[in-house]
């Protein structure tokens, strides 16, 4: 067995999983299972959301280690599921490494929803939550429009790799500013419901769930990193909306 090849394959699988937003324990467990399936003597992995360290000892007792850095990454459940399924097959059937790489490449090519679909979805998210939190039909329709625009702004900012704190501030400022201006023009009945509905597009729900799952699994470092991210996002939302509302009071005289 080629230990170097095994290490590389395990690293690729781990990287793919982590990049799709899988929990830390899933990444680490997967690697340990792959090591075990291919009969590695001694192997370890350490993962946090932005870094992977894998090591492996070959038959002669020589140590191999690899480190891989990750940038910011979102969540892609379809890929997490597919990689998870792949790992099961790998551990059961122990296919040659080239086949694993082919499978990884295939999963990597799985489709995303198109930007247009995602922008529309952003509008519907705002629409649904405005209703859910007690807004009227008119409120929900306003939220739909503002949600689409906010999602569009998010897309543009992400396209040019603006940092995520800044992105959140700008997007939540836009959410509140649009809702306020609309309200001032007579669109909508409950300003707060509209704003909250649109803001649901920005709240760190995904990150918060990941924090819990990482912390419960005992991956405290990873959990704390993500918790910081969740708190920063929440602060960004409060700042952006706060500025918009303060300005709205001064300029438009709308008290939301």
């Amino acid at each position: 067995m080629d230990c170097n090849e095994l290490l590389n394959t395990a690293t690729d699988v781990a990287y793919a999983l982590l990049e799709s937003g899988a929990e830390i324990y899933r990444v680490e467990e997967t690697v340990m299972r792959i090591y075990a399936a291919y009969g590695a003597r001694e192997g370890h992995i350490f993962a946090i959301p932005t870094l992977l360290i894998l090591s492996l000892q070959d038959e002669d007792g020589k140590n191999l280690t690899t480190i891989r850095r990750l940038g910011n990454h979102g969540s892609d459940l379809a890929r997490v599921n597919a990689y998870n399924e792949l790992c099961r097959t790998v551990c059961r059937e122990r296919p040659p490494f080239s086949q694993i790489h082919q499978e990884l490449a295939r999963i990597g090519r799985l489709p995303h929803y198109t930007p247009l679909q995602q922008i529309a979805a952003g509008g519907v998210v705002a629409f649904g939550f405005t209703f859910l939190f007690g807004g009227s039909a008119i409120d929900a329709l306003c939220a739909l429009a503002w949600g689409v625009l906010v999602k569009l702004i998010l897309f543009l900012l992400e396209k040019y790799h603006a940092n995520s704190f800044f992105t959140t501030i700008v997007a939540s400022f836009a959410a509140a500013a649009l809702a306020l201006t609309g309200f001032w023009l007579g669109l909508g009945e409950n300003l707060d419901k509209i704003i909250i509905g649109v803001l649901m597009n920005l709240v760190p729900g995904v990150v918060l769930t990941n924090v819990m799952r990482d912390m419960i699994a005992g991956d405290l470092v990873a959990g704390l990193t993500k918790l910081a991210q969740a708190l920063i996002t929440a602060t960004g939302i409060a700042l952006g909306t706060g500025v918009a509302i303060s300005l709205g009071r001064v300029i438009l005289g709308v008290v939301g």
Binding site: E85, F129, G205, T209, I245
Partner: peptide, 27 residues
């Protein structure tokens, strides 16, 4: 499949978006 997807979406309505908003507003 991993439970994460179900959990993530299931909890989403309860994520305190309104809480963040009202906290800031009272501030």
């Amino acid at each position: 499949v991993p439970a994460t997807g179900f959990l993530l979406i299931g909890i989403f309505p309860m994520v305190p978006g309104g809480g963040i908003y009202y906290t800031m507003k009272y501030c």
